[in-house]
Design a binder for these strands. Structure first.
Lengths: 259, 259
DNA sequence: CGCCTTATTGAAACCGTTCAACGATTGTGG
DNA sequence: CCACAATCGTTGAACGGTTTCAATAAGGCG
C-alpha cells in the first residue's frame, strides 16, 4: 500500500543478484520494487516456493472489510483501491495500490478495509499462514515490514495534508504528480518501450476512472473533470485520451501541486 | 501517535504484574497504555533504567521536521501535534499525541514531521540509540512496534475519511467523540477523581485551542466555533468553559459523527 | 488594570457541489 | 455488423457550505 512519494527508482535496492534466483522472480518486472527489493536470495526462494499468481478483473473485490484475510500479495500489474465509507454511502479511497505495492496489513486477522480492483490485475500471492510463519522466524524481515509500514504512514500523512488543506486544482495536480513519480511501473500500455515513455514529454497512464480519482481526492467527478481541463487549457498537461496524460514540464506540475 | 478509536480501556493488557517493577513505573499513570502496556517486567526494567523525565511547555517544539531524532518518548500528560504544511503556510495536523502515545517513528534518522506541544507536557524519554539497540535484540518487541504502527495507519485512514468526506458538523462531532473515547487519560484537571468524571454526563477536557482543532479537522477556527455552538444549541453537548465539554448522550454524539 | 491571545458572531464572497443535459466510448444481443 | 443500452466523461447553471473579512467579547497573565 505504498503510494510512492519518490520516483520508484530511488527505492530499488540491488540486494538480490540474479544468480540463484527462482526463474519466476528473475523475469518479474517488480523484482526491484516494494518488499521484493529488500529480499535476500534465500528469502526469495522461500517466498517463491509458496507463491501463486492470482488474477482479478476490474471491479472485483479482493478483500471485504471485516472478513478474514487468507492471503497477502505483491501487485505485478494493475491498480486497486482500499475504501472507507460513511453510513450514508459517501466513500473515500484511503489507499492506492499500484504495481510493486503489497496487499495488505500483515498480522491482522480481519481486513480493516475493503480492497477493490480498479483495473485488471495480476498478483503474486502468498498464503497468509505460511507467510506469517516465515516472517516470525526472520526478525530482519519483520524489521523491513515495519519500515514499509512507516513509509505507508508517511504517505497517509501527506495525503491528510492534501485532503484537509489543498484546493481542488492542487489536489488534481498532486495526484497526477503521484502517478508521474510512479509511472515507469505502469506506462501507457500502447507504448512499446520505456525509452519511448521518457522520450519527449512524459506520457503517463491513469489506471482508473474520474470517479475513482474523485474518491481519492475528496472531490466530485465533475470537479476533477473541470480541473483536468483547466490544467490542460493552461498548458500544464495534455490529455490524449481519458486514461493518459502527458506533461511537458514536471516542475510546472510540481508548482501546481505545492509539493 | 495512536489516536485512539476505541476506549483506551480496551487496549490495557495486564502483561506486567506490579511485583518486581521499577518504582517509577509502578506509580506511572500510563503504565497500562500504549507501548508500556505490552512490556514484560524485564523489558520494563531495561527501559526504566535509561528513561528520564522531560518537560515541555505549551507551544514548545519537540521535533523539527528534517532534524535528527535524539530521543523517543511516552507521553505521561499533556498533548502535542504533528504538523505538515503547504508552501504558503496552510497547515494540517496529521497526528494528535495524547497521554499513553509514543513519540515518534522508530528507526527514522530524521523527523518526518515537526512535533509541537499544545499544552504543558510530561514525557518519559529514552535515548534513541539505546532504545533502538534494545529493540534490535528483541524481535518480539519489534513485532509489537509493528502492531502499533499498523494501528496508527488505521487511525490515519479513518481520519482521511473524515477529511475527505465529512461535513463540518460531522468533523467536529467526530473529534469530540475521539476525545471522549480517550478521556479517562486526561479528564478535566479540576475533577478530583475518575469516578466523578463518569458520574452523570461525561465531562471531557479539550487539551487545545479552537485553532488547533481547526487544523486537525481541515477547517477554519470560525467554522469550528459555529459548529460547537450549533451542537450546543441542539443539546448534543454542553460547554461549561472553553476547554471542556460535557455530553449527556454519547450515542447521540456518535450519530452526529457518523461513526 | 491593561495588554495580548483566544473565542464568538455577522455579513459577504467564493469554491466546490448538485442537478441536469449531452457526448463519447464500450460492450451486448439481435 | 449494427442498434441499443450502459457506463463514463464533459460542460453549464444554480445552489449552498465553508471561508474570508471584520468587529466584538471573553479569557489569561503580567
Amino acid at each position: 500500500m505504498l503510494t510512492g512519494r519518490e520516483f520508484c527508482v530511488t527505492r530499488i535496492e540491488k540486494t538480490n543478484t540474479s544468480a540463484s534466483l527462482p526463474q519466476k522472480c528473475q523475469h518479474c518486472t517488480m523484482r526491484h520494487a516494494g518488499l521484493c527489493a529488500t529480499l535476500t536470495a534465500p528469502e526469495m526462494v522461500q517466498f517463491n516456493a509458496m507463491s501463486h499468481t492470482k488474477h482479478f478483473s476490474a471491479g472485483q473485490l479482493i478483500r471485504l472489510e471485516g472478513e478474514p484475510v487468507s492471503f497477502y500479495a505483491n501487485v505485478i500489474s494493475g491498480a486497486a483501491k482500499t475504501i472507507k465509507s460513511t453510513h450514508d454511502g459517501r466513500q473515500q479511497i484511503v489507499g492506492l495500490i499500484l504495481p510493486g505495492d503489497f496487499i495488505d496489513r500483515v498480522f491482522v486477522e480481519h481486513a480493516p478495509c475493503s480492497v477493490e480492483a480498479m483495473s485488471d490485475m495480476e498478483l503474486c500471492a502468498y498464503p497468509r499462514g505460511r507467510f506469517e510463519a516465515i516472517v516470525k522466524k526472520d526478525p530482519d524481515l519483520e524489521h523491513r515490514l515495519l519500515t514499509l509500514a512507516l513509509d505507508d504512514l508517511d504517505q497517509a500523512e501527506e495525503w491528510m495534508l492534501l485532503l484537509g488543506r489543498k484546493t481542488a486544482r492542487e489536489k488534481v495536480a498532486s495526484f497526477l504528480l503521484l502517478l508521474a513519480r510512479r509511472s515507469h511501473h505502469f506506462s501507457c500500455p500502447h507504448l512499446v518501450s520505456e525509452r519511448q515513455a521518457f522520450a519527449g514529454p512524459l506520457t503517463i497512464h491513469i489506471p482508473m476512472t474520474r470517479n475513482n480519482m474523485a474518491d481519492y481526492l475528496g472531490l466530485t467527478t465533475e470537479t476533477v473533470c473541470r480541473q483536468m481541463t483547466s490544467l490542460r487549457k493552461d498548458g500544464v498537461i495534455d490529455l490524449p485520451d481519458n486514461h493518459c496524460f502527458t506533461c511537458p514540464d514536471i516542475e510546472r506540475l510540481e508548482q501546481e501541486a505545492d509539493r
